[in-house]
Design a binder for these strands. Sequence first.
DNA 1: ATATTGAATATTGGATACAATATCCGATAC
DNA 2: GTATCGGATATTGTATCCAATATTCAATAT
Lengths: 222, 222
Amino acid sequence: MAKFQTVDIGRSASAASIIFAALRRAIVEGDLADGEPLRQDEIARSFNTSRIPVREALTMLEQQGLVKTERYKGAVVAGLSMAEATEIFDFRALVEAEVMRRAVPNMTTEVLDTARACLERFAAASDPMHYGDLNREFHETLYRASALPYHLGVIENAMDRIDRYLRAQLVLSDGMERARREHLAILDACARGEAERAAALTAEHIHGARDSLAEHMEQRNG
Amino acid sequence: MAKFQTVDIGRSASAASIIFAALRRAIVEGDLADGEPLRQDEIARSFNTSRIPVREALTMLEQQGLVKTERYKGAVVAGLSMAEATEIFDFRALVEAEVMRRAVPNMTTEVLDTARACLERFAAASDPMHYGDLNREFHETLYRASALPYHLGVIENAMDRIDRYLRAQLVLSDGMERARREHLAILDACARGEAERAAALTAEHIHGARDSLAEHMEQRNG
DNA sequence: ATATTGAATATTGGATACAATATCCGATAC
DNA sequence: GTATCGGATATTGTATCCAATATTCAATAT
């Protein structure tokens, strides 16, 4: 029997995981451009570590498909061709629609309220580059109700790989306004418990983003 | 202009990638039991390397979900609970059915012949533990026709995580015979160009394996 | 006997040092 | 001038060594 309240002192993370998280964020948010080389030495200096944890972080990023490594040549940020981006959008539409279908029956009013709050913050947000985070938070809040952790992990990885393109496209044209409209429609279907409609709207939402992105960048590498 | 024929001398792989491949194979094929600890020192000795490439290999395996690592405690083979295994089967059914749907229109007679040859080798195979390889080869041959590399990668990872359970189950009861029958039906649908039927049969095939596995092991960790 | 403490051991995380390879750049031959 | 060669430099891959943490187990107190 514990006589004193125990506190979890956050068990400081490994250097490798910290570096991984930082690099991942930089890539996902588009701070590092496609093809940009990631020098072990340079990264190690900026984190005040040796190259060993840097290498582990790069290994993780490579497994996630966020960087490409060539032996004795180093790692570069892995860009996506139009075909690759399109494929990932299609994959997301497939999986996220299914997850939504299975999440709707489990959605409590708390989940719906949290998602609604995301949309309100989304509408009120001043920093355009923060839209991406709120967008992900909205979707993941709903998906979490599915209680399908493997699916969620796969979706998260797929999002990571196209997020920077999505974010760039979101601020262009009517991307923001349309996203807002579609999000409201999805949330409405969820609130009414119409799983099939929520799933269909989710797939449309993602396919729309795919097509919009395809339009707004015909100038891309293969 | 090259005066001499250049030969690609297979560019010897890094120690880390060799160790990764070996450990992955051992886990996927079930040679290493769930929860078995993977000691860096021991592995390093058996490959005549230092622990550095071993650690990179373990990092890769962790990203793929094949091992679980705890800081200062080391890595163990990551087993699956019944719920986790079931979820991965459902995921596979979803994705593989879609990939099949999109692969059928692209299937050349060569693809179909290769797949048919897999089934013949499958029927004639003497080593039961080799069934798993032929099973994967059959499916992947058909899926490759979809030209959806991202989907294929995701499927491969999902397969990796449940393959040992599948293999164990395949040799039990009528697993072999039923697999043979279902494979023939799938191949038939492909040959006739019936994409929807091939997709439906694929989903059934995987759901059948899921249910069969669930029956044959009620005794499992959570 | 049981629980607790603390040293000894084992194991992992990270830093430094060295080896292997690629890249750059000037020299040279044509 | 252009192409090829060879050394200098830069960068990655691996080995060795030290630090940090976990685990084990004997000694002790209750």
